[in-house]
Simulated scan of single mutants.
Amino acid sequence: MSKPYVVAIAGGTCSGKSTLTDRLEAVFAPRCKTAAFHMDSYFKKEPPHTIAPITRKEYVEHNHPDTLELPRMYEDFARVTAEGSDAQLVLAEGLFALYLDDIRERADLKIFVDLASDERLARRIVRFMAWGQTFEEVTERYLDTVRFRHNELIEPTRWHADLVVNGTLDNSQAVDVAACFIEKKAGLL
């Protein structure tokens, strides 16, 4: 029994992390036992609050590792990535996939999904308005806290990445490049 090949996929809010993960899962699931590990599944039921650095307005925090149920997440991650687990390939995606040592150090391949901040904001507006928030609520929160957390915690993690890919994912080239590398290194040809 061998340990699964682990790919950590990080990037800013709405950068395309989940899309890349879904596309890689679609490529590999027909060929091997693939597990997608989504860090968003581990948000605390009652997340902490944060005070915006400029406006001093209080917000529910979702852009800091303290918002995650880390012990449960690490336990589940250790189980899915353990030698002898069912999975041959684990795709671990989330804002903090390259920030958290316990995830990053276990990864065989580290990918950072890069996308310009204006494009990430536009995607965030569309997504959160579809969930019932107003334009003003989405943009105010992004400008007050999300961009600061990105600059503080997420952007620096790109230096841990083995591969930085374009988050527009308009074509499949980033998926093809990542898949080709994974196939070769993980022996999933």
Rank of each mutant, 00 (worst) to 15 (best):
E152S: 14
I54G: 00
L91V: 10
Y59T: 01
D176T: 15
V27E: 06
T13Q: 05
R56P: 01
P53I: 12
P53C: 03
R23Q: 06
P4I: 12
L24A: 06
P48C: 08
R147V: 14
F148T: 15
E136Y: 09
D176A: 10
D86R: 15
L109M: 11
W131D: 00
A8P: 01
E136Q: 09
A161V: 14
A52W: 03
S15L: 02
T145S: 11
E61Q: 14
H160P: 04
P30T: 15
E105K: 15
G132A: 09
D76A: 14
E152H: 15
Q133F: 07
A122I: 06
W159G: 04
T157M: 01
A26Y: 08
A26I: 09
L89Y: 10
F37N: 02
Y5P: 12
A179M: 04
T145C: 06
T81N: 02
Y99T: 09
R31S: 02
R23A: 03
I111C: 01
E25C: 14
F37Q: 04
K110E: 01
Q173A: 09
M73I: 04
I9C: 02
R147W: 05
I154G: 02
D108S: 13
K44C: 03
T139A: 04
D118S: 14
E155M: 07
E137S: 11
R158A: 07
G84F: 04
L169T: 15
D40M: 12
R149C: 07
Y142G: 01
R158W: 00
P48K: 12
P30Y: 10
R147Q: 10
N171M: 10
F112H: 03
Y99C: 04
S2N: 13
M1K: 15
R120K: 12
V146Y: 09
L89P: 10
D176K: 15
D176N: 12
D118E: 11
T13W: 06
H150V: 11
P71D: 03
G12C: 03
A116M: 00
S18N: 13
A36P: 06
A161P: 07
Q88E: 09
P4H: 11
Q173V: 11
P48N: 13
V146Q: 08
T19N: 11
A174G: 03
A107E: 03
T55C: 02
L70V: 13
L98H: 08
E61I: 03
N166E: 12
L143P: 02
P4E: 04
A186M: 07
P71G: 04
S15Q: 05
D101V: 12
E25Y: 10
D108M: 08
Y42S: 06
F128A: 10
F148G: 04
